[in-house]
Design a protein around this nucleic acid. Structure first.
Lengths: 127, 127
DNA sequence: TTGTCTATTGATAAATTGTCAATAGACAAA
DNA sequence: TTTGTCTATTGACAATTTATCAATAGACAA
């Protein structure tokens, strides 16, 4: 048939509730903290943080990486000795480290807010 | 001067990171679980969950309430014996209770994901 | 020489959130 | 009694974030 492996047709499913906004960014920053990496390997690494990578569109990750680069949080270069197509290798910058620190603080706060709600819920369990 | 109390000019500040998407909805549902209430009182109740109510635009809350009503999660009626302007009193429906249960499950999952990231961060503390 | 896999880019639609402006009843002060 | 202020609500629209689809391209295997 056509030269397309027809994907499982990620059918318009309801967006997940309760997810953290822009959560992708701190996840990528954390992964890059372990060392330089390119988009595709970062994509797989996201499973660690609860992403369902199979259902994710890779363009989401690439877009975020390029945006992060435009903000100076990462820098990219072409991997010299790679087989296959050229791939961009991303590396964390000092600014990226700092932004990640801010993110961590925000996430602790967010966690506390979620806890507040969960506790409020449990306390008013009327049924 | 004009009949407007000039607000502190909620100046275009960077949107907070690390907030949960649509967090407002489960907060309102939880507040309504304690009993019927109208928009303005719900607005104040949000402080419990980390919202900075002074900086919030009330229209955000009203919009959410109306959307929740259109989804059948709450029903509203006009408060008969209210002083001042008429106000809509919202009451939680069975569907609302159920949606809140789903939210709680989602939020527990979200919290687990945040924890995973925080742990990953702490484990790779290279500096 | 066609197809498949990895890797990346771009455009656009849809959903969510933020901001501003307007209306309206009650009440207090001038 | 008219002006202003407070509570309460609605509507419109801009900005941001997220999802989806379509396309390109090198390497390699059949």
């Amino acid at each position: 048939m056509h030269g397309r492996c027809h994907k499982p047709r990620r059918s318009r499913r309801a967006r997940r509730r309760g997810a953290v906004r822009m959560f992708l960014q701190p996840c990528l920053l954390t992964l890059l903290r372990r060392g330089p990496a390119h988009g595709y390997s970062l994509l797989s690494g996201l499973t660690d943080f609860g992403f369902e990578v199979e259902r994710m569109d890779p363009s989401v990750v690439y877009r975020m990486l390029r945006e992060m680069e435009s903000q100076g949080l990462v820098v990219s270069s072409w991997d010299a000795d790679s087989l296959g197509p050229q791939r961009r290798v991303y590396r964390l910058t000092a600014a990226g480290e700092e932004t990640l620190r801010d993110w961590i603080a925000d996430l602790r706060r967010t966690r506390a807010e979620i806890d507040a709600l969960l506790q409020a819920y449990e306390q008013t369990t009327t049924n």
